[in-house]
Simulated assay, not measured.
Amino acid sequence: MADTVLFDLFGVIARQQSPSAREVLRATAGVPAPAFWATYWALRTPYDRGEVTAFGYWRQVATALGSTVDDRQINRLIAADVASWSVVDDDMVAVVERAAASGRRLALLSNIPEELAAHYERHHRWLRHFDVVAFSCRTSHVKPEPDAYRWCCRALDLAPGRILFIDDRVENIQAAEAIGMRAHLFISPTQAHQAITELDTVPRRR
């Protein structure tokens, strides 16, 4: 049975981009919204995987949109992008801290570029609760690819069935279940806490 909890970051512990933050980022790019967001996401995976730098990513976005960007604008885009993903759900941080205090083993799995990963490491001390932090920019594996989950199993030295994965996206949950993990589709901090406490009948690390 599962006794280790593997959390997603964005949409679970951290919030998705707000409309206002999205508009700041789009305005910084100076491109109409539909085209900007389609290109932003179409080119995102190599950036999340660490295959291209932030400067490389934003130059690719600009080229695909038929525009150009200089280094100063790219720095502004990076700052706006990081800010748009930086709001944390304090209720979920409390869930993480309660789970850690109970002796539960915790890990984190996130599709995230290096600039955001470094930001979270600098500003969020609650990351210390995680035995394993699997940032895609450093593991070279992104969800929902099976190897993203297998990387976590190897790092934790656990069979998939020993892990409960919590994520807000159905495709990521299905991919985790396909390799044998237990999974919980995130709806709220209350439900996530309940899913974790239901593991209390199995042995935990002290």
Rank of each mutant, 00 (worst) to 15 (best):
V5C: 05
D8R: 02
V12I: 07
I13S: 01
I13R: 04
E23D: 15
E23C: 09
T28G: 14
T28R: 07
A33I: 03
W37Y: 13
A38W: 01
A42I: 06
R44I: 03
Y47D: 03
D48S: 08
G50C: 07
E51T: 06
A54H: 08
T63D: 15
T63P: 00
L65P: 06
S67A: 13
S67F: 00
D71V: 11
R72E: 14
I78D: 01
I78M: 06
I78S: 03
A80Q: 07
D81F: 09
W85Q: 08
D89E: 10
D90Y: 02
D90F: 00
V93F: 01
A94F: 01
V95M: 02
A99G: 07
A99R: 03
A100E: 02
A101E: 04
L106K: 06
L109Y: 06
N111P: 10
I112S: 05
P113K: 05
L116I: 12
A118Q: 11
Y120D: 05
E121P: 03
E121Q: 13
W126Y: 14
L127K: 04
R128Y: 01
V133T: 11
V133D: 02
A134S: 14
S136H: 04
R138E: 12
V142R: 11
V142N: 13
P144V: 10
W151D: 11
W151M: 07
C152F: 04
G161Y: 00
L164M: 12
F165D: 05
F165E: 06
D167M: 12
E171G: 00
Q174L: 15
A175R: 03
A175D: 06
A175Q: 04
E177C: 12
A178Q: 11
A178R: 12
I179N: 10
R182Q: 13
F186H: 15
A192F: 02
A195Q: 09
I196V: 10
T197S: 12
R206P: 13
